[in-house]
Nucleic acid binder design. Structure first.
Lengths: 154, 154
DNA sequence: CTTGATCGTCATGAATCTTGACTACTTCAG
DNA sequence: CTGAAGTAGTCAAGATTCATGACGATCAAG
């Protein structure tokens, strides 16, 4: 008989696997960013930075995309604004709303982060073979859409 | 030119994908557990429950496996002990250590959780095809070992 | 037996999340 | 046009969760 401990070790479930992968990516991403001058970022800032675009995004949209409370997004935007990564600009199309826009430093961070993650993925592609890795990611995307009913809590 | 926003939407990076998958599994797992009488568990308890075995595990081992501080594991074990899921027993082989052992209720929870995750994976296997899903998980395992240098922070 | 490391816990302050309410603005029905 | 209902973002307060350093007890090595 195979004990649960053995199965856990040889065939971790999907939750464990995705947790490991998420933390591994986060760790490497932020550690590398830190060596490139972006040493004032914390993991949680990723919820905003990961979905930021050059054109600006509304806070509510960031909340929806990241699955975080609007309140939390507000705090993160405050912090990132104080750190000089982004700024709030009025949304021309809706005077209630504000667009969260990257500054020059924010754009640099986005480019750096994209390059680092691309590097991680390239390493994985090398390990599995390019064709296999494309297949892996294709299946990964299929399993995670639609954005898992991820209505933000608020 | 493809904007970053479009690429993000059609080809999310590995961090975003694994985050979505992790949260989706967690949400479904705990929601279903709640309908089966295990409605007093929080996500964070998973760090302990996911690695618990019938034979008992040391707190330090749980810390290493889950990547959480020893301190946090201690709190989680306190809570789960109060909820009747597990108990601390002295480790016969080391009088400093204590073994975290599931109670009857803990064992029931473990069986239920395994069944639920198996169900989630079966659904995914159906969606991708059994053969593809096996391949997916095989590649997933390969990318996440060795246990991502996951020395616990402490 | 002494030295250094490990196991689990305690204690404290910091960071983080949750909840509800509030203003300003938009949208839509009448 | 006017008023009601809904949405965007913020404020505030309390509860939860985390990080950090230190401690007594035990083990392992010499």
């Amino acid at each position: 008989m195979v004990t649960r401990a053995e199965r856990r070790a040889t065939d971790p479930d999907l939750g464990v696997l995705s947790g490991r992968l998420l933390f591994a990516v986060q760790r490497e991403l932020f550690a590398t960013l830190a060596t490139q001058g972006f040493d004032d970022l914390k993991y949680r800032h990723g919820a905003v930075l990961a979905y930021l675009t050059a054109d600006g995004v509304r806070a509510t949209e960031l909340s929806r995309l990241s699955g975080q409370h609007k309140q939390i997004i507000g705090t993160l935007v405050d912090e990132l604004e104080a750190l000089g990564y982004l700024e709030r600009r009025p949304d021309p199309s809706d005077r209630r709303a504000k667009l969260v826009c990257p500054t020059e430093r924010g754009l640099a961070q986005m480019r750096a982060a994209d390059a680092i993650v691309d590097g991680i993925e390239a390493r994985h592609a090398e390990r599995l073979g390019a064709k296999n890795y494309r297949l892996f990611k294709q299946m990964f995307r299929e399993l995670t859409e639609p954005p898992p009913g991820s209505e933000p809590p608020d």
